[in-house]
Every structure is written in structure tokens, then in C-alpha cells.
Amino acid sequence: MEIDPFIFRLSIFILSIFVGYYVVWSVTPSLHTPLMSVTNAISSVIIVGAIIAALSGNEEVIFSSSSIYGFLAIVLAAVNIFGGFLVTQRMLAMYKKKKKDK
């Protein structure tokens, strides 16, 4: 009997939860705020779905009822991707070690 592809996706999902669990415990508490902003940025990979939805129209009807939602989702996710990664970068740039020569 063939295995439903859903089971494979479920396996990825469950294993990723475990990976996430161990990786996040190793994050140092002082970086918990950047952790939140970066997880926020990567969860915007949902833009993948938004792009598929937005491009579902054809040459004549670019803005169909379903693709409009795709376009809106692209804007929202893009705000998050750029905002999330850049603000994380800005924060991380501030974390400095003690300088001896100062």
C-alpha cells in the first residue's frame, strides 16, 4: 500500500518541532527579543502562498477575487520580511563585547 504524502509532511512537521525545541533552548536569554523578531520574519515565508495566489489570474484578469487576497497578503508578508530581518540586524549590531581599548 502506498503511503499518503500527507504522512511525509506530518513527519517533517513533527521532526521540525523537535529541532525547534532544541535549537530554541540553546538561544541565549539576552537574545530573546531578536529571536522573536527573526522568527517573525521567517514565518513570513507564507509569502510563498501569497505569490501563488496572486499569480493565479491570467493575462486578461490579473485582479480576480482570489488573486486580490494574494496581492494583499504579499504586501503584509513583505512588510514583515523586510521589517523583521532589518530590525533584527539593527538589534544584533548593537550587541557588543567589552572593549579593552575604550
Binding site: R9, F13, V19, G20, Y21, L35, I42, V45
Partner: peptide, 22 residues
């Protein structure tokens, strides 16, 4: 899961467990 996209599934699981741990 709906889109059958592993990048989204992995990320979702990572973010989900990260938030839960925090």
C-alpha cells in the same frame, strides 16, 4: 500543509515551538 510546502511547514513548526518555549 495546505500548500504542501516544506519550507512553510518547517518554519511554522520552528516558530510555533519557539514561541511556546518563550
Amino acid at each position: 500543509f495546505t500548500l504542501e510546502n516544506s519550507a512553510l511547514i518547517i518554519t511554522g513548526a520552528l516558530v510555533g515551538s519557539s514561541g511556546a518555549i518563550l
